[in-house]
Amino acid sequence: MSVLRLGYVHARVTDMAEAKRHYGDTMGLYPMLEEQGRVYYKGWDEYDHHSLVLEEGGVGLVKLGYKVADPADIELYEKRAEQFGCLVERMSTGENREVGDGIRIVLPSDHVVELYHEMTLVGTEVGTHNPDVFPRHLVGVGAPRIDHALITAEDPGLADRFFREVLGFYATERVATSLDDDAQIIGSWLSTSNTPHDIAVIGGPNGKLHHFAFQLADWSDIKRAGGLFAMDDVPVDVGPTQHGITRGETIYYFDPSGNRNEVFSGGYLAFPDRPTVTWTVDELAKGIFYIGRELNDRFTSVLT
């Protein structure tokens, strides 16, 4: 029983034509379906039908979808979420295009998380028989996959508990007001796989998105993505640099609606028995941006 990974991010965009240029031409995601004002994308190394859904109208996050390993898991997560005090609702096959039935949970922080076990398997361009190591005609950044999302919550400690106690995630790193046992958690990075985080939560208003991230292979791909951002006039927030937290390499930038994106690579291999790293607030800037050790205003205040 487990949650496998972040399966999809469903976000709002103000202008679909511009969004398509960004996610299709600059990020190089594959457009999989366009229907009723929604566009569905996937990265080249993702087997399921989509990992990003864009919806025209507004900005910010609609919901996050996490894929579970076993269909029987869903009932258990449903029970646990209800016990935790969350609003839980069943969702049926087809409510989300190409996604099977599952549940929809409203977190204490007002974010919506969906759990599902099935999404149409479409495969990748390189296939599964003697595959080449990448598709020949990638476009732009050519992002292979979605990686994680960072959301904000008034009570990040409670969100940390939700992901651990209900969904079985483990905390790889936390930012706390002190090293004492009764310290308050003001940020938490949680994994359900072997990547350093599949979700992260920091203190802020409920229901908001800080960013969602695409995984790239390595540092030189991050630099190359930066070059494409310059060519396509994509506003960069911070980077390229390295995180202290997760040790990942990064650029933060904005999509044409002002939603923050990240390209992320590297980071350590994580396991559930890994002791949780704690960062104190006075070292937060180093935790987030290890090299520059400075948090700009924009990074902490811009949310959608």
Binding site: P235, F254, S257, G258, N259, D297, R298, S301, V302, T304
Partner: peptide
């Protein structure tokens, strides 16, 4: 002070 420069954040 600005944020996203793309009309999304209100900063």
């Amino acid at each position: 002070r600005t944020g996203c420069r793309r009309g999304g954040c209100g900063v």
